[in-house]
Simulated scan of single mutants.
Amino acid sequence: MLLSTVILPVDRGHDGGRAKWQRAKEPGFHAAYTYDHLSWWTFRDGPWFGALPTLTAVATVTARLRLGTVVTSPNFRHPVTLAKELISLDDITGGRVTLGIGAGGNGCDATALGQEPWTPKERADRFAEFVPLLDRMLTEDAVTESGSFYSADEARSILGCVQRPRLLFAVAATGPRGLKLAARHGQAWVTTGDPKLHETGTPEQSVEALRGQVERLCKACADADREVAGLDKILLTGFTPDRGRPPESVDAFVDFAGRHQEHGFTEIVIHWPIAGSDFAANQAVFDKIATEALTQLG
């Protein structure tokens, strides 16, 4: 079991943001991620910095910690320009980038570029083009592709990624089309649980729903003639009925993580506490989880 954190890009570097990322490199965390949005719900009226510039800055003060997004989406990204930025980031980090990538959702920055809100089908259609084209952009020197939504004309990516054949994809998906993309293109799969259970479900119902998601992922991998064991399974906490936040003790968190480990999850991601927000938590307990939980999980 791996333990990682997600640090929201809400702090100026000199106001504490730099210190958080530097502390995240301490023993315990496998990776530190950030959200790739232009703004996000309850933080819309405050500071919110760009994900890739933030990760680039963090790369200069860390050496071994993996860095990444949870998650990047087509809301305001294009595979050609995104690939160039990711190749640059992977080079700067020395090959430590994991790209969390998903179809996106409504709200936040979904219409920031002036587009009409996409339906779930439109999102799935775009994502089905976005991921394969981005994959090609990160593995081929030059790409020409004419798609319904995303195209490339002699787009160059010479040298490519430090990681070979490219940096890691962690595909966020729960539906059949997204799980198919995870099975074909992902080195990891990401979920936040069943959104229908977020407000009114129970922790037991959530665990059962997650078990069902893993089973559907297994089927998608079998259909793709791929061993599901080769795909890391990441749970981004904070969106299940128990909210998945750092509990009152290390033992309580170990119990939470262990229940999900039993169903195949290989990485748990917890939010760095932010006072006065949905992600408020006891910093001292969070710190103890970061340094002690893995010993008990094994």
Rank of each mutant, 00 (worst) to 15 (best):
K20S: 03
L197G: 01
K25A: 12
D278F: 13
A110E: 08
F130M: 02
E122D: 11
R226C: 05
V10I: 15
G244S: 09
F169M: 02
T191G: 08
I234N: 00
E208N: 09
S151N: 07
A172S: 13
G178E: 01
L297I: 03
D223C: 07
T200S: 15
A257S: 05
L179S: 02
G50T: 10
D194A: 14
L133P: 00
L3D: 01
T69Q: 07
G160Q: 07
G104S: 11
D225N: 15
A51C: 07
L217D: 07
M1N: 11
G175T: 05
S73Q: 07
E227H: 09
F169R: 01
K219E: 15
D109M: 08
D242E: 13
I234F: 07
G201Q: 10
G28W: 02
L38W: 11
T62D: 04
L89M: 03
H263N: 14
G186Y: 04
S73F: 02
I87S: 02
D223A: 14
L217I: 11
P9V: 13
T56E: 06
T119W: 04
G28F: 02
A280V: 09
Q261R: 15
A229D: 15
F253Y: 14
A257E: 04
L82N: 00
A103F: 00
R177Y: 04
E122A: 08
G193Q: 06
A142P: 00
L294G: 10
R123P: 02
L134G: 00
W272E: 12
L159Q: 09
A59W: 03
A252P: 03
E129R: 02
T174H: 04
T111M: 09
E154W: 13
E227K: 12
S88R: 07
F149H: 15
R211G: 13
S39T: 15
Q187A: 10
A209W: 05
L99F: 01
F130V: 01
D255C: 00
K121V: 13
F169I: 01
G212R: 11
D153W: 09
D11I: 08
Y35A: 15
R259Y: 03
T81Q: 09
F265G: 03
W21E: 03
L217P: 07
R166L: 05
R123L: 09
L89Y: 01
R126C: 03
R166E: 02
M137K: 00
N75R: 10
Q261H: 13
T139H: 00
G212Y: 10
A170S: 12
A182L: 05
T295S: 14
G175R: 07
R123W: 05
T111K: 04
G186D: 06
F43E: 09
G230Q: 11
S277C: 11
R123N: 06
E262D: 14
A183M: 02
S157W: 01
E129S: 02
A155F: 03
A281V: 06
F29N: 08
A63T: 15
V207E: 12
T192S: 14
T93F: 04
L235G: 03
R96Y: 03
R259I: 11
K84S: 08
I268Y: 04
G178V: 03
